[in-house]
Design a protein around this nucleic acid. Structure first.
Length: 588
DNA sequence: GCCGTTTTCGGCCCGACTGTTTTCAGTCG
């Protein structure tokens, strides 16, 4: 699909940004929720959810497609009806169909679905029979004992509802992948030590390396399932056992994290791993392929006329439906199935292909290590080069280096370089991009650096147009080699500043400026969708740890994982190049 | 409501667990 160049003309300066794809997706999901509660055709409901999912993983801003008069029904799962609704939201900011449903049923009715155990059918009964419209209404009805009198409801359900509302229903948010990692590793270690356990693997979004993880899905290969599940339910960190059956169990840890465990036989391990790795959309799409081939695919295997033809290994499951093996990071139903069918999957970048790190700090600014310590850590990781890129003077809070201190640092780097012939320390700076788009270091001093990394650390609230102009002006500077953390987002706490990233990517690709994939676990900026857009546009990517301490050099692996989710190959990443080729790849 | 190298109409992934039932609906993943 053709990318559209800029913001729609005539956009008022005060409005930060046109309707975001996420907002459109949210409204469609909300509409689907209310339709489901109304008892609409479930496939119609699913159609809205599918469209919402597509929109969330589309990097092109729909508002621009609408402005350009593009045919939205080209998007998978979007037909004429949903295209019209998207257009309405973009043009008017409203979705009349949703608003009239909300007026009729109460705007908070869909929020009841967030209570565990309540789905659309039950919410409908609560609404119709008890007039419940909000969580407050529901709590009141439950306390009065009216809920348990309804058909299909009982005393247990009633008290579970009350408990959920008391807890503050929308459970805790998602954990950063890096936060989930130690929890997942201890669990796996615990399970592997149990008698009879042959294999224990974390599946789910954790295995797909999503930047955040909502819960953990574990698959264990073991002949004696029931006893393993019971031992699992007694794991020291478990605070609540949600369910415990003969093949699966679900618990909540003291941290609030939910963990699901599934036990399977070795003949089913691959199929189970595929199923529990997801994503749901990916699995559904693969199952559809199986149906087309008159096969049945479930978590136990692939079956033809009742006979299992695959299941022990994941690769065989893919092969049985005519697909090449799809790496977990790609399993989002974002084109990987089509690519696997045609044998056109990317050969994803791997951590061992990284030759150096182009963005780290020392204690000269806000880092904790010395140049020598950072270099030693980089050598220990087998890197060929390491760029020291402390902050520039404008960033006072980080003790940014002024002219004099930067010069002193450059001389210190020279001395380090004299000592080693197995690594090159590159002279760099994470230079502030000032409000007007100029750089915080004078040109003559920039000339003394090997390259510079530009970053936005101030004036996040500029309008989309001004923010975009600011960054484009910076990209225009021939000494700017990398744009650091291009959206400025912090996962879960700060939204990206409203910038026209498509235009930034396009410009970066044209002028030979690299885009950083910042590997700090709370940044991971660019995200998977944008990193793929960058790759598709031909922009080069620098995966950088932004380490502020020696051990943070290991953040690189989070960045590599995110890059893999963005279909990135070795050739897309500049710091897979050796030193001389890296230098040749630089601008001018 | 969407979709189509079998189809423009008739499909739309599949199974486990729980609670409320007494053979199953609803929810969840």
């Amino acid at each position: 699909m053709r990318l559209v160049r800029s913001c729609p003309p005539g956009l008022p300066e005060g409005r930060a940004i046109p309707v975001q794809n996420a907002e459109i997706a949210e409204r469609l999901e909300r509409y689907a929720d209310l339709l489901a509660i109304e008892g609409a055709n479930p496939f119609r409901v699913r159609a809205y959810r599918n469209a919402a999912m597509t929109i969330r993983s589309t990097s092109t801003r729909l508002s621009e497609l609408v402005a350009a008069g593009a045919d939205l029904s080209q998007l998978h799962g979007v037909g004429s009806a949903i295209a019209a609704k998207i257009t309405e939201v973009v043009r008017t900011g409203h979705l009349r169909a949703l608003e009239s449903l909300e007026r009729r049923e109460g705007p908070e009715l869909a929020d009841l679905l967030r209570i565990p155990g309540l789905g659309p059918k039950r919410v409908r009964v609560l609404h119709e029979q008890l007039g419940v419209r909000t969580q407050g209404d529901l709590a009141e009805a439950a306390r009065a004992g009216r809920v348990s009198t309804l058909p299909g409801f009982g005393a247990k359900t009633e008290s579970a509802i009350l408990a959920a509302i008391a807890r503050g229903a929308p459970a805790r948010g998602r954990l950063l992948w890096a936060e989930a990692e130690p929890v997942a590793e201890s669990l796996v270690e615990f399970l592997r030590a149990l008698p009879g356990v042959e294999r224990a693997v974390v599946a789910g979004s954790y295995r797909r390396r999503r930047e955040t993880v909502g819960d953990l899905d574990l698959v264990v290969c073991c002949a004696r399932g029931k006893s393993i599940l019971e031992r699992f339910a007694e794991y020291e960190d478990v605070s609540q056992v949600v369910s415990l059956g003969s093949t699966r169990a679900s618990v909540v840890l003291r941290s609030g994290l939910e963990v699901d465990l599934r036990v399977v036989s070795s003949a089913s391990f691959g199929a189970a791993l595929h199923y529990f790795t997801g994503s749901k959309a990916h699995v559904v799409a693969v199952r559809r392929l199986a149906v087309e081939r008159k096969l049945k695919l479930n978590e136990y295997g692939v079956f033809r006329a009742g006979e299992r033809i695959a299941g022990e290994r994941e690769a065989d499951v893919f092969e049985s439906v005519g697909l090449a093996y799809v790496e977990p990071e790609l399993r989002e139903d974002r084109g990987e199935i089509e690519a696997a069918a045609k044998g056109e999957l990317p050969r994803l970048i791997e951590l061992r292909e990284i030759r150096g790190d182009l963005h780290v700090h020392t204690r000269a600014s806000d880092g904790r290590g010395t140049i020598e310590a950072m270099v030693a850590a980089a050598r220990a990781r087998g890197y060929d080069y390491l760029a020291i890129s402390d902050h520039s003077q404008a960033l006072r809070v980080a003790r940014g280096l002024d002219r004099k201190r930067l010069r002193r640092q450059l001389r210190a780097i020279d001395r380090v370089n004299e000592r080693f012939d197995d690594i090159r320390v590159l002279k760099a700076s994470e230079v502030d991009i000032l409000e007007d788009g100029s750089l915080d270091i004078a040109d003559d001093l920039l000339d003394e650096l090997d390259f510079c990394v530009g970053a936005i650390h101030s004036h996040f609230g500029l309008s989309a147009r001004k923010q975009t102009e600011r960054i484009l002006r910076a990209l225009d500077h021939p000494r700017l080699q990398v744009l650091a953390h291009p959206t400025g987002r912090l996962i879960g706490s700060r939204e990206n500043f409203g910038v026209d990233l498509e235009r930034v990517i396009e410009t970066a690709a044209e002028c030979g400026c690299w885009l950083e994939l910042n590997a700090q676990p709370q940044r991971l900026d660019l995200d998977d969708v944008w990193v793929r857009a960058a790759r598709d546009a031909g922009a080069k990517i620098s995966i950088a740890s932004d380490a502020h301490a020696v051990e943070q050099l290991d953040f690189m692996r989070y960045g590599v994982a995110q890059a893999r989710r963005g279909w990135v190959e070795r050739r897309d990443v500049v710091n897979t190049l050796g030193l001389s080729r890296l230098r040749k790849a630089m601008r001018g």
